[in-house]
Amino acid sequence: MRYALFLGCTTPARSRQYEMSSRAVLERLGVEVVDLSEFSCCGYPIKASDYYKALLISARNLAICKSKGLSTILTICSSCNSMLRECAYLISKDSELKEKIDKDLKKVGLSVEDDIEIKHIAKLLYEDVGLEEIGSKIERPLKGLKIANHYGCHYLMPKEIYEGEEDILNPYSLDRITEITGAQIVHYGYEKSCCGGPLLVSDEDTALEIARQKLDRVKEAGADAINLVCPFCSLMYDGNQKGIERRFETKYRIPVLYITQLLGLSMGIDSKSLGLNLNVVKARDLIDKIS
């Protein structure tokens, strides 16, 4: 089974280490991905400006996928995931919408496709590859490493488009994967909080304050690192951690790992291949914490 890898906008530009570690882990697990250069932005950034147009360019990506003979899109970013899934869901349920989109897509020589599956890489690991298979590939259990999991919002919600895959109030997929790596899960009480990312464009102050609340809790709980599944979220916790430290006169120094970086470490993949040196908050020392 081949997956069309959907990188989105943020990952290649701001967090290519997530792409690196994802490719490395997928290779290790024998998952084949295809790169489609025709993929555009998923459409999420313009959802707030013009919802229909966002769905439209999302639908274009689905159509591109189908036109290359592939039927499953693999995403790195949660926002991309939710946008593409929302689009697929709505098109399949609303025939009027489907027609309208089809008409517009025809302008660029494409037809609407609704039979595309969209999977987040974390879900791929949890559901398709499976914990057993992953477990068999663990070479260096991350004993002693304390991880605070951040599920984020678009990985789980809106629950209709995810059709009840995971309980939004008590999610577990990332926890299970973390456990398999041998690391210890730290509960910090603010698990459900949004990262504040979407507010960066309109009100940076508020966005940073929202992210700060979670960083405070994570620090209080004594976690060694944050584990997340969305480059958008990492913009806040990793990219802006120093900015928050400066603004609010605190110190965190909490590294932020993407799920495949965490998994890659436990699979014995070297830090360079995982792009750990590209993480904004120094993550290289994490290895020392592993006993």
């Binding site: 906008c9 943020t10 530009a13 555009s40 932005c41 950034p45 707030a48 400006s49 013009d50 309109s202």
Partner: peptide, 26 residues
């Protein structure tokens, strides 16, 4: 947005997608 009252950043992102199809062009 339709009334032209959205924050600048939002409008900018719309324009970016229109011209280059991505938020960040490498």
């Amino acid at each position: 947005f339709k009334r032209g009252l959205s924050p600048d950043g939002i409008r900018r992102q719309f324009e970016l997608l229109k011209t280059q199809g991505r938020i960040y062009l490498l």
